[in-house]
Write a protein that binds this DNA or RNA. Structure first.
Length: 143
DNA sequence: GCCAACGTTGGC
DNA sequence: GCCAACGTTGGC
């Protein structure tokens, strides 16, 4: 299983919106960046990710699961853009803020810090475990 | 609201 | 193929 981070402006698509979709999930559409798209093409059903709110909040607020592998983005007007579908999995107990990530030297290599504009990015297993702990989540996500 | 970073576009 | 101009993102 591979781990990821999905970034969204809450005014455009929030964690609450994602939760409201329930088991049906939702397309992670609207990405118009090749690097982010290529990461989505690598995703497999069952992969897990963090859901991050950019802008005012700047924090990981939940976890998600990939429920459909990459397919054409229904909001794109050309064939270049693909996306996956994800569903909300767990809300965090404690939001993990950008400041918390910056404060931990073990997280200093995260794309979140190094490539602040990248909206879909990989997370290493170590980073996944550490951020889960900071978020007050159990070590293992539910099946 | 500003600006740095960075991606894209289009003229050459 | 280069690069200037421009647009967008996201943190501050």
């Amino acid at each position: 299983m591979t781990f990821w981070l999905f970034k969204s402006e809450p005014s455009a698509w929030s964690w609450a919106d994602q939760v409201a979709r329930g088991e049906a999930g939702e397309e992670w559409n609207g990405v118009r960046n090749y690097q982010a798209r290529n990461f989505m093409r690598e995703m497999r059903v069952g992969d897990r990710g963090f859901f991050y709110h950019s802008q005012k909040e700047k924090a990981v607020v939940g976890t998600v699961e990939v429920i459909a592998e990459s397919h054409p983005d229904s909001t794109a007007d050309d064939a270049r853009w693909d996306c996956v579908d994800i569903k909300a999995l767990e809300p965090v107990k404690t939001p993990v803020t950008l400041d918390m990530v910056k404060a931990d030297p073990r997280l200093s290599d995260m794309a979140l810090l190094k490539q602040s504009r990248l909206s879909v990015q990989p997370v290493t297993p170590d980073e996944w475990r550490l951020i889960r702990a900071l978020a007050g989540l159990p070590e293992q996500a539910p099946e």
